[in-house]
Design a binder for these strands. Sequence first.
RNA 1: GCGGAUGUAGCUCAGUUGGUUAGAGCGUCGGGUUGUGGUUCCGAAGGCCGUGGGUUCAAUUCCCAUCAUUCGCC
Length: 397
Amino acid sequence: MKSFNFKINSRLGLARSGTMQTPHGTIETPAFIPVGTQATLKALTPEQLAQTGAQAVLANAYHLYLRPGPDIIEAAGGLAKFMNWAGPTFTDSGGFQVMSLGTGFKKVIDMSGEVTQPDPKPKDRLASIDNDGVTFKSHLDGSRHRFTPEISMQIQHKIGADITFAFDELTTLHDSRQYQEESLEQRTHPWAEQSLAAHQRLTKENPDKPYQALFGVIQGAQYEDLRRQSARFMADLDFDGFGLGGALTKENLGEIVRWMVEELPEEKPRHMLGISEPEDIFDCIENGADTFDCVSPARIGRNAALYLPTGRVNITNAKYKADFAPLDETCDCYTCTHYSRAYLHHLFKAGELLSNTLATIHNEHFIVHLVDQIRHHIDAGSLAEFKKDWLTTYRQL
RNA sequence: GCGGAUGUAGCUCAGUUGGUUAGAGCGUCGGGUUGUGGUUCCGAAGGCCGUGGGUUCAAUUCCCAUCAUUCGCC
């Protein structure tokens, strides 16, 4: 029996607030979901993560499959119990690694569309793709593995997150239009159907396990017709929600989201994969996105980049050496209520582990709290004014 | 006092059989990170090669002196 439910509370244009029910609790949306790739949010205990206001956490099937292995997590009682996280959990399908180990190897997702690094030579790639799945070498030990939609769903069912994603191919902005079409028709779309079929079978075979929701992932890169076509394709399948994924041009991110949202049923949730910059979050929510996940707040935090209401700063800059003010005097997170900029500066300069913890707490809190505020302003009908004020302050640096 | 060793970027050191803009690591300064990357990636600044002479077309490199540091001996 399905214990996944999504209810819309209020609407403001395409934006909406809602409540997502999962076996491990509810998520008030819009919501930012921090990423704990390897069943832990790096540098934080689950209690610390909860204190940032995070309602759920997203882990990665690829990483957990390689280590410790799905059987271990299943034997532990599932992802949430294994990592001692009391709330809802998500897993990404592993589709991202098709890109990141293949054409995108050693290259981050590039949202500018500019080629900053040449594509890796085929021999340097760790992954090769065909229409049935992807064969890849483990980044841990080089051993050979294969993912198909069926295998990804088996893994995700053993991991046992509340919300799972269909196995897809994430293309890049550098791929040709023809490649994007072929990717949709020959891989992402058939794989969505295969993921759904495997998911339904596995759900039926394990009636005693908590229900896992499955979101279909929409691709189509920067092309309107492909985005709409992919969204319609996913909308016609019996998914619990949708992942809006893939290569997105930053300049018109909101518009791309709108293309997809206009083709999707209103009553199902939409999750933005890998988005967390404040400007992007506003644009996506305004156009109908409900949840977000991203490693960025944690990763940039670990590297001393911290969010302030007046813009992002690098706390290792010399000007913070003797700045004894709180990191952000308007923030009520643990870091800002207890430590100075000078102390954070010192921790990073000294390479101390606590720097990662304090920075991650603040950055996750900052983005989670921003989305919480947006939710309240949707309910209050004041999103446009809030966005204008907030971004005016944020961009003044 | 005698003998030896060493003096090159803030630090620890490469280097030049004499020859165009003298290098590295660390440190300093700055930037990056959007479904992977827990100590990361990229970039920049910074040296009259201890000082003074000499040899040479040319010296950080050879010679002399001198100063400093250091080791050993008396």
